[in-house]
């Protein structure tokens, strides 16, 4: 699974960041599922997904976000995506995902938006 890596870190007391690195496809999607599963088990629902080093995403990867977004929002949280490269954004855009997900330019912007949700 060295083609894809997820690192979980704290952004602040109640916001966690998932740093994605590499290729997110049908082979590597379970790695991201595990990371979301871990956060939700810990009842952490304010999640920033930093896509700065995400080089590729297919619909299997996009499906992971679809699997968790409802649960996260039902618990007054959100999944906000930041620092996306144009290449990865184009795939989200082809499917109309910007309509459903908050895609922001930086982690700081994502944190500001979380603060506004209070």
């Amino acid at each position: 699974m060295s083609d894809f890596k997820v690192t979980i870190r704290d952004h602040s007391e109640n916001i966690q960041v998932l740093d994605l690195k590499g290729y997110l496809d049908a082979h590597t999607a379970p790695v991201l599922e595990d990371a979301f599963g871990k956060l939700l088990n810990e009842k952490k629902y304010r999640i920033i997904v930093n896509c700065k080093e995400l080089t590729y995403i297919s619909s299997a990867g996009l499906g992971v976000f679809m699997a968790y977004i409802e649960d996260v929002r039902a618990n007054k949280g959100d999944i906000k995506l930041s620092d996306m490269t144009p290449k990865v954004f184009n795939i989200f855009d082809l499917l109309g995902f910007p309509m459903l997900y908050d895609i922001v330019s930086s982690e700081k912007d994502a944190a500001t938006k979380f603060a506004e949700m209070k």
Partner: peptide
Amino acid sequence: DMQEYLSHYHRGGLGIYL
């Protein structure tokens, strides 16, 4: 229909659409 798809948080079935 992507609008309907997204509003109901579906998963999968996007490959052929893409």
